[in-house]
Simulated assay, not measured.
Amino acid sequence: MDSDTEESPRKRQRKNPFSGDSFSRKNLMQEEDIRLETTRARFSNVLKRHGELTERLSRDSDKMIFERLQKEFEAACASQTEEISLDGEEWNDGLLATIRERVHMEADRKAMPGDINMVPGPHFQEKITYKVGSKVICCLEGARIGIQYETSFAGETCDLYHCVLESKSFLEKMTVLEHTIPFFLPIREAENDLLSSNAMKFIDYVGELLQAYVDRREQVRLIKELYGNQIRELYHSLPYHMVEFVLDDSDCKVTVSLRYADLVSVLPTRIRVLAWPSKKSGIDAETMNRKENGVLGSHQIPVRLSYAEDAVRTMSLPEAFAEIVLNLPRALQQMSQQTSK
Rank of each mutant, 00 (worst) to 15 (best):
D108R: 05
H179Y: 10
I145V: 14
D87P: 02
Q148M: 08
E72Y: 06
F124G: 01
G121W: 05
V132S: 13
P113G: 01
K131W: 04
E74K: 11
G94R: 03
I147P: 11
T129V: 14
C77A: 15
E178S: 14
D93F: 01
A111M: 11
Y130G: 11
H179S: 13
F153P: 01
K127P: 04
K71I: 00
H123Y: 10
L165Y: 08
V103E: 00
R144K: 15
R68A: 14
K168C: 10
V119C: 07
E156G: 04
L96Q: 03
C77F: 08
E150I: 01
C77V: 12
N117P: 06
I145Q: 08
A190Y: 14
E101G: 02
L69T: 11
S85W: 04
I99C: 00
K135H: 04
E89Q: 02
I147M: 11
S79F: 06
I137N: 02
F124E: 13
F73D: 14
L185A: 13
A190H: 15
Q70L: 08
L140M: 07
E178P: 12
I181T: 14
V136P: 06
T129K: 08
H104A: 09
E101K: 09
E106W: 07
D159I: 05
G88T: 01
Y149R: 06
T157V: 10
P182N: 09
G142Y: 02
P120C: 02
A154E: 05
M174K: 15
C163H: 06
H162S: 09
C138T: 15
G94M: 02
V164S: 00
A154F: 05
A75T: 14
H162C: 11
Q148W: 01
K135P: 00
G142T: 00
E106R: 10
S134K: 12
P120N: 06
E82Y: 01
G94H: 00
G94P: 00
T180K: 09
